[in-house]
């Protein structure tokens, strides 16, 4: 049975697209046939993060408008056999996506994929609503910062009331918290909300904590999902998150401050 996963946050710039790319790639790495769908019509970026921006011919809106078939619009990943991307269009028409159109495409994707990862746009407008409407599970991406946590809470409220599952009175969407851009050092100094603080406020299952990492920018510069950088802390943290998503128990890593040398401790630096 195919699963529809939405990656959402409310607030922009917290790492939704980075997460969609990493989680989708991670699922495909583990042998699950996966498609990542960009819902950010007008401001598509998933193609860049996935490194397939020059191969976009047809997009999501073309499929909805019957200007292309789904097979024509799906972009096959060059690295992984099981991975596909459906790009958003760059049209400025905000109403390009419709509830029925999206529903039809999701239904068709369910026929040939195990996981459908929906990369939601920021905000609570139409695009964000459509991205989560058909979801079975939601990954709420949050930064340890007041505005992001508040927006995530607002998003949780919407997931519980404005989705297809909620409207049909079915089992509610399974919600996961993914804390990104986490800096254990600042948490220790009392300058940043800790993972327990955010868990306590949002009260949902913790899927993972992704440390603030230089690897993320490095990966996006090159159009490689960060999860493929297996040496990096962020890549490993995303791998763990994918394992947990698939039901495996994994201890949380990268929550503690890295030990510093004596000289570094005395004179500071690298802060």
């Amino acid at each position: 049975m195919a699963k529809v996963l939405v990656v959402t946050s409310g607030k922009g710039g917290v790492g939704k697209t980075t997460t969609s790319a990493a989680i989708g790639t991670g699922l495909a790495l583990r042998g699950h046939k996966t498609v990542i769908v960009d819902f950010d019509v007008g401001l598509r970026n998933l193609d860049l993060i996935m490194g397939c921006e020059r191969r976009v011919v047809y997009d999501f809106v073309n499929v909805i408008n019957n200007e292309a078939t789904l097979t024509q619009a799906l972009i096959k990943d060059k690295r992984l056999e099981n991975l596909y991307v459906l790009a958003a269009s760059q049209t400025r028409d905000k109403d390009a996506l419709t509830l029925e159109g999206v529903g039809k495409v999701i239904e068709e994707l369910k026929g040939s994929f195990e996981y459908i990862v929906c990369d939601s746009p920021a905000g609570i407008e139409k695009g964000a609503h459509l991205a989560m409407y058909y979801a079975d599970e939601a990954i709420v991406v949050t930064n340890p910062e007041v505005s992001s946590v508040r927006d995530s809470d607002r998003m949780l409220g919407l997931l519980a009331s404005k989705s297809k599952r909620a409207e049909n009175g079915e089992d509610s969407i399974r919600e996961h918290l993914l804390l990104t851009r986490y800096n254990p050092e600042r948490v220790n100094k009392g300058e940043m909300l800790g993972v327990e603080d955010v868990e306590e406020i949002l009260a949902i299952r913790l899927l993972g904590v992704i440390p603030e990492s230089q690897a993320v920018l490095k990966a996006s510069n090159q159009g490689i999902p960060v999860i493929l950088d297996e040496q990096s802390d962020a890549g490993q943290a995303y791998s763990d998150a994918v394992e947990r998503l698939l039901g495996k128990e994994m201890p949380h890593r990268f929550l503690d401050v890295k030990k510093k040398g004596f000289l570094q401790r005395l004179f500071g630096g690298n802060e």
Binding site: V187, G190, L193, I201
Partner: peptide
Amino acid sequence: ASIAKERL
């Protein structure tokens, strides 16, 4: 951070 938590 504790101020942030309280406000939130």
